[in-house]
């Protein structure tokens, strides 16, 4: 005789935590998640190694030129030694997070919602004593947790490789900058996770949601930032039009006044893309953009605060939207 006659002790359930823990366990057994995380890590590593090889090439060229000058009995002061900012080698990795990381976030977001719809497990979950927003919050928490862990692995691994490779090692300031970039990367990829998750939860057919999410990714990640760059008048000549023509800063400002409307539209296109904000912020913090190389962190963060706010507000706004939209169980019962 079973002792089921003992009535189970019931306590207030914690559905958000329970769903998040189940989703993480489920995802960690999913080869797809492991493969895409590994792919991002590999792509970032390749970018880092490529950067390191390029730097080594610069150093070799410098050494060869220096040796030639010294052999001719001349001073080597005339040629500038290449600067080595180890964090600048993360440029490729940041670009991979920007493009591939966002695409992976879309796939995870889609999987998070579509897998429940496809397996039709929602009816079992939604007949439990929990509110619909708790289901959404649990799924979102797991997805963002997975992204955060994957990014921590990738950036942590790269930091370790940089530390070993640079010879001089990374300072605590460098590590802080990498940690900040990790946090912002989580918020950035969370935006794409949430877009895909919301679409896959609410569109009539979840497969269409993936197409729409990738159309949004294409626009925000690839098209808008490129339009902004391509249409920048100063970018029309390598090294910058104004610099090549030796036009002084006050004259540049005067010239640009004639393009005010054009510049507003161009800048508006760039500003609309969360990717551009992510790129501006991370390139500044890591000193990838030459203007910021060697600058202390404080002033950079103050200058880049607008970009930071934009990224976090986008993520929070999408999170609020995911929680606020009412779930349609009838629709969710169909893949």
């Amino acid at each position: 005789m079973s002792d089921l006659t003992l009535t189970p002790v019931l306590s207030p359930p914690t559905p958000v935590r329970t769903i998040a823990a189940k989703d993480i366990r489920d995802a960690l057994r999913d080869r797809f998640i492991l493969i895409v995380t590994g792919f991002l890590g590999l792509a970032a590593l390749v970018a880092l190694v490529t950067g390191a090889i390029a730097l080594r090439g610069d150093v070799a060229t410098y050494e060869a030129a220096k040796a030639s000058l010294l052999a001719l009995g001349k001073s080597a002061d005339a040629i500038k030694a290449p600067e080595f900012y180890p964090l600048r080698l993360l440029r490729g990795a940041i670009e991979q997070i920007e493009i591939i990381g966002a695409a992976i976030a879309i796939l995870i977001g889609y999987r998070s919602a579509a897998s429940e719809r496809g397996r039709q497990t929602l009816s079992l979950m939604l007949t439990r004593p929990m509110r619909r927003w708790q289901f959404v919050a649990g799924k979102a928490l797991a997805g963002i947790g997975l992204l955060a862990s994957g990014l921590a692995l990738v950036l942590g691994g790269l930091a370790l490789i940089l530390h070993l490779m640079s010879g001089v090692g990374l300072t605590s300031d460098d590590l802080l900058r990498i940690a900040i970039v990790w946090g912002v990367s989580v918020a950035y990829t969370a935006c794409f996770f949430l877009v895909s998750f919301i679409l896959a939860l609410h569109m009539k057919q979840s497969s269409h949601a993936l197409l729409v999410a990738f159309a949004i990714w294409l626009t925000l990640v690839l098209v808008a930032p490129q339009i902004g760059d391509t249409l920048d008048p100063d970018n029309q000549v390598a090294g910058g039009v104004f610099k090549q023509l030796n036009i002084a800063k006050p004259d540049q400002v005067e010239i640009m006044k004639g393009f005010a409307t054009f510049e507003t539209v161009r800048d508006g296109i760039e500003q609309a893309s969360v990717t551009k904000h992510f790129e501006r912020f991370t390139f500044a913090v890591l000193g990838i953009k030459a203007t910021y190389a060697g600058l202390p962190l404080g002033p950079i963060l103050i200058e880049m605060l607008g970009n930071l706010i934009w990224i976090f507000l986008t993520a929070l706004g999408l999170g609020a939207l995911a929680l606020a939209l009412p779930l349609n169980p009838d629709r969710l019962a169909k893949a």
């Binding site: 189970p8 019931l10 306590s11 359930p13 914690t14 769903i19 189940k22 057994r29 497990t121 439990r128």
Partner: peptide, 22 residues
């Protein structure tokens, strides 16, 4: 429909937790 990557016990523990079973 259940979670195919989880065992029967893991599936059931998940649903029990959602129902507040202590």
């Amino acid at each position: 429909r259940l979670y195919d990557t989880l065992t029967a016990a893991e599936n059931l523990i998940f649903f029990a937790s959602l129902s507040g079973v202590a």
